[in-house]
């Protein structure tokens, strides 16, 4: 029986990603990697977790295997499965098994979205055993020292269905991500989009206003990502008010009164 191998090449981050550190996260991550402790990135969506992972993979020179988890993702999607290629059945590694073999950094984005059975395969990798049993082939993969498992998790969901179990979270070093400080966020928005300082400043100010509405009308305030989107529209010549409505207000809510209030905030800032 044949096995399809993944090559490290396709997962390497070749040029330095733009990343603005917000605190101690770079040092923490490096220390976790060196001591082979898996990492949990906590924080709302769009606050730079993915970018941070790309940056760290580049910095540590490790391949980065990213999996966006969703509610149909099963353990075998992560570990691997048989395929028929030609007339032969071929075992193909899933991303997790591939990452273990390559000594890569494996980033499971939004882990709580995945099916519960995925935690079963994660646990033995996340404690000092550092193994991945591949049930279907009978193999047990041993993670090389360079391998690192990282999960992301958004504690802002109040949902009791999406709490990360203690038995899982207690295996990880947690790094908390929040919205960047205004000055830093302005720099990020300006760098990512090319908008002038004044526009970046107003976008960040507007973001602060939407964040004040969290829990009252909004489940979540605008993330840096949304500001970047709005900034890009502005750079393409869309009027700022229109850009903010389309890229910030509308994605945040469908509720008519909240949307109207967001419109008024946009029109107050721009």
């Amino acid at each position: 029986m044949d096995t399809r191998a993944h090559s490290a090449d396709q997962y390497l981050v070749r040029s330095e990603p733009y990343y603005e550190p917000v605190g101690d996260e770079v040092r923490l991550f490096e220390a976790a990697h060196a001591s082979r402790v898996p990492v949990l990135l906590k924080g709302p969506t769009g606050c730079g977790k993915t970018r941070f992972m790309e940056f760290m993979a580049w910095r540590l020179g490790r391949p980065l295997v990213t999996v966006s988890c969703h509610d149909d993702l099963t353990a075998s999607d992560l570990v691997g499965r048989y395929l028929i290629i030609g007339a032969e059945t071929v075992w193909v590694d899933g991303p997790l098994a591939a990452a273990v073999r390559l000594g890569a950094i494996c980033y499971l984005d939004e882990i709580v979205e995945a099916r519960k059975d995925t935690t079963v395969v994660i646990h033995p990798l996340a404690d000092d055993r550092r193994i991945l049993p591949v049930e279907k082939t009978g193999e047990v993969l041993r993670a090389p020292p360079e391998f690192l498992l990282a999960l992301s998790y958004n504690p802002g969901y109040q949902s009791v269905l999406k709490e990360l179990k203690q038995s899982t979270r207690q295996r990880f070093v947690a790094i908390e991500f929040g919205h960047p400080e205004p000055a830093l966020e302005r720099r990020i928005v300006a760098h990512e989009t090319g908008v002038d300082e004044g526009t970046a400043e107003r976008l960040v100010r507007l973001a602060g206003m939407t964040r004040n509405l969290k829990g009252n009308g909004l489940d979540e305030g605008a993330s840096t990502r949304l500001l970047v989107h709005a900034g890009k529209l502005v750079m393409l010549g869309v009027a700022p008010r229109t850009a903010c409505l389309a890229a910030i207000a509308e994605p945040l809510t469908d509720e008519p009164e909240t949307l109207a209030a967001l419109n008024e905030l946009v029109a107050s800032v721009f």
């Binding site: 206003m209 004040n212 509405l213 909240t258 109207a260 209030a261 905030l265």
Partner: peptide, 12 residues
């Protein structure tokens, strides 16, 4: 009223 209240809550 409701829209204005939310508007005010958005301000710091």
């Amino acid at each position: 009223g409701r829209v204005l209240e939310l508007f005010l809550w958005g301000l710091s």
